[in-house]
């Protein structure tokens, strides 16, 4: 009875939201979005601070915000404060998981699933490839889709692969912690340098170079690399916490 009641309720709610969105004349329907009426129009034309240069791949030099990938421009440059918050969220949850699960000395959880031969050999081979793609994605974050977060998770998945491959494999948690903390604090220090030297927190003080070049978009690739390392170490830390148990 309770399930039926909640089903009815939920459906009614869903129906109402959909209908209200349809009737709402300001809610632009799916697909007919007019970018010019939105804030993101100036993200595309890079004229937030009045930049007049036409944005052209391979030609535009020292634009207002460097990365070719506009999403990365928003994530790491226009709204980089969100990303800082983002990183702290992940940092806090990994710390929380560590606090909850890993309070004493840890040892690997003895699962009744033991990796067979195929998995052991296969994962050794795959580990390198996944790691490389992860790093590639991080480094080219400002040019191609992806960036710090996806790259970081790829690195973590490669480490997960090692965990699955071998029962008593344990990464040196200590080193991940230090890597994570260094990356994080470097990111904030860059921001502070921006604040003290160039009187805006997280400002892109390096020159942006030519749109589309590997070495362009000022601090964005550096920041994304740091984020990638941090996310990678945090998620592998979480994996480690889940796959270990307290030494009795």
């Amino acid at each position: 009875m309770k399930n039926f009641l909640s089903l009815v309720l939920v459906l009614a709610l869903g129906g109402m939201i959909i209908l209200s969105l349809q009737n709402n004349q300001y809610f632009t329907a799916y697909g007919e979005v007019d970018i010019t009426k939105r804030v993101s129009e100036s993200y595309i034309d890079r004229d937030v601070n009045g930049g007049t240069q036409a944005v052209e791949f391979g030609v535009a030099n020292n634009l207002e915000s460097g990365p070719a990938n506009i999403v990365t421009a928003i994530v790491a440059d226009y709204r980089s404060f969100d990303t800082l918050g983002e990183v702290t969220v992940l940092f806090v949850s990994s710390l929380g998981v560590a606090l909850l699960l890993a309070s004493g000395k840890q040892k690997r959880l003895d699962l009744h699933f033991h990796p067979n031969f195929m998995l052991r050999v296969g994962s050794r081979a795959l580990f390198g490839i996944i790691l490389m793609t992860g790093i590639f994605v991080i480094v080219h974050g400002h040019l191609t889709p992806g960036g710090g977060f996806p790259g970081g998770t790829m690195i973590a998945s490669s480490i997960l692969l090692l965990y699955l491959a071998d029962d008593n494999f344990r990464t040196k948690v200590k080193s991940f912690k230090t890597l994570e903390s260094i990356a994080g604090s470097l990111y904030v220090i860059i921001g502070l340098v921006g604040l003290f030297a160039f009187d805006y927190f997280l400002v892109n003080f390096l020159d942006n170079g030519i749109l589309g070049e590997l070495f362009s978009a000022g601090i964005v690739p550096i920041v994304y690399a740091l984020i990638g390392l941090k996310v990678g170490s945090e998620i592998s830390g979480i994996i480690d916490n889940f796959l270990t148990e307290e030494v009795a």
Binding site: A68, I70, L211
Partner: peptide, 8 residues
């Protein structure tokens, strides 16, 4: 939304 060679 990425500037590449073609749609630049």
């Amino acid at each position: 939304p990425i500037f590449t060679g073609q749609n630049n």
